[in-house]
Write a protein that binds this DNA or RNA. Structure first.
Lengths: 338, 338
DNA sequence: TTGTAGGCGTTATCAG
DNA sequence: CTGATAACGCCTACAA
């Protein structure tokens, strides 16, 4: 719309130095004398110079951009995760390029390809459950990759023990005397987090001499609507569970709402446990007993990991963040007494 | 890690054609004969060729990347907004580059500069309230800009009448006989959406012969914690309001929780109205009366607008999306009777 | 500390 | 329909 683009050489001419000097002024200021640096900066300022990222990327081989692929952007969890990634990366001068796959493996592969094509210097993905072809693409790519939540042995990753999360949730219920517990989970395919949480809960019950039969596990969309449907289905069984675990807080919150809609009192009539510990959970009435997952930390660590992988070449490549049960008011002893 | 990068010319050699032909095979397939096209594609496939975005961007002047700057990623609203932007842009082959400013004007300016430097072909921002210098930077930049939620006359924008949103919320309360209403708002500076919603509510009250004095307006962080604090403050006034408007659902939901914590029954003892109509609002007990804002549509339209600005040069540059009051169970006649 | 020169991988303009 | 041949704007040895 306005004057044609100001380029490096324009600044150089204005400052009376060579293009190389201007280039250095941007990327390696220390190599210049204070005087010239100042002069170059003044010239750049005056001309309103903005370096061309594409050209820099092409010449230097680095785009200062990190790609992140999440299942969906429309989720409390991933929103916080991205916020955390974004702010941490920004500190190091990197920009975040985001993509989502909406639970479609092919879309994820496509996203990886696109991000790589866009020149992302590094990639951050969620989970490790994806087609071998995608994994190969990731390994082949020259960009460092960091997996989050769930990891794979041959990839750098920032994990959380999802199986243990499910275990802790169920164990808590066992300790309260519950033997018949139901679960509302998200879709299990292409989602290792969900599978692990379910498996962990089953493990805890098994160790206590109980089981969670398939018909007490209800697979739903990860939404409030899904949670309510799943909860309703479990409550309508001939022998309804005395407690329900939602594999993510959103689902558990929906269960809380469904229970209330059915005039059941939580936790007296029904205990409910979630996993994640989102903000909302602490503020509900009754507040939700859940397993805390350090979502923000996962993002921060993942960001720091790609950056250090990128800049130091090396880095600790396996971090497992601690999780813990947070007992609040949505759980009580089986049998009705709080 | 592996073989050095496969480039255009490698594919060309393998396919026995010139580099130019390979380039066309990617960007203008129609110009090639079916036979050569097929041959080139096979070669590219075999070599695992991935075009270099930086080089393409440098040579073509377009990065196929759109930058979006939101106040924060960590919000239901903006998460949905971004999701919508992302999926719409993806359809046209664009990638989303995101940044957030956490309510810091300077950070936003910095983000604009960075996004422009990264070669974003277009920019999507939230609101129109920012320093003149940033506006100038936006105008100067050669990239089309689309403002969302609130607009400015000389920018393309996808808006929603925030003032009317506040107006509708208050008007509904007036019709229910409420004269003393309180408001819990977010920080008003650097946030035209909040100011407009507050102003609209005041306008509605004024027209009804009432006022919303400053001391019945409580400015808080846009969080559940903020909402509860704000609600508590209003309820502790000598003459507490009979109804409260939260300028975003999150705040209103927090008010609902605070009211319950104080053993107040909503809507009998206190009516509460929100603005946004997030998913959760419909599922709460009582469900939240609120003003529906088509968040997803805003994102979709904004995305379509940048793209058409980019590709057709022209486009409708001012779209105002309709909003409407959604009456649910959190409001009732003043005086206690539902 | 600063200048020179060649190249990064594609696209685009022109011929053929 | 396809092939040469310049740019594109910046970085980076290498030289001074």
């Amino acid at each position: 719309m306005v004057a044609r683009k100001v380029k490096l050489s324009d600044v150089a001419r204005r400052a009376g130095v060579s293009p190389a000097t201007v280039s250095r002024a941007i990327s390696q200021p220390d190599l210049l004398s204070a005087a010239t640096l100042k002069r170059v900066r003044a010239a750049a300022q005056a001309l309103g110079y903005v370096p061309d990222g594409a050209a820099r990327a092409l010449a230097s081989g680095r785009s200062m951009t990190i790609g992140a692929i999440v299942p969906t952007l429309d989720s409390t969890i991933f929103a916080r995760f991205l916020q955390s990634l974004q702010s941490t990366l920004a500190r190091d001068g990197y920009q975040l390029l985001v993509a989502s796959h909406e639970m479609n493996p092919a879309a994820e592969t496509e996203a990886v390809r696109m991000l790589l094509a866009r020149g992302a210097d590094g990639l951050i993905l969620v989970g490790a459950d994806r087609p071998r072809s995608t994994l190969d693409l990731l390994r082949t790519g020259s960009a460092p990759v960091v997996l989050t939540w769930c990891g794979a042995p041959d990839f750098a990753c920032v994990t959380v023990d999802n199986e243990r999360a499910g275990y802790l949730a169920a164990q808590h219920l066992v300790e309260l005397g519950h033997a018949r517990i139901g679960m509302v989970t998200g879709r299990l395919s292409f989602n290792d987090r969900q599978r692990a949480r379910l498996a962990g809960a089953r493990q805890a019950m098994r160790e206590a001499g109980h089981e969670i039969p398939d018909w007490r596990v209800n697979e739903q969309d990860l939404s409030l609507a899904g949670g309510r449907i799943g909860c309703a289905a479990l409550l309508q069984l001939d022998t309804p569970p005395t407690a329900i675990i939602g594999t993510i807080d959103l689902l558990a919150i929906a269960c809380l709402q469904e229970a209330r809609a059915r005039r059941l009192t939580v936790p007296t009539d029904l205990s409910i446990v979630g996993i994640d510990d989102v903000d909302m959970s602490a503020y509900l009435t009754p507040s939700l007993t859940t397993v805390h997952i350090p979502t923000g930390r996962i993002g921060q660590m993942a960001a720091e990991m790609v950056v250090s992988l990128l800049e130091n070449g090396e880095a600790q490549t396996h971090v497992d963040l601690p999780i813990e049960l947070v007992v609040r008011r949505s759980t009580a002893r089986a049998g009705g007494k709080a």
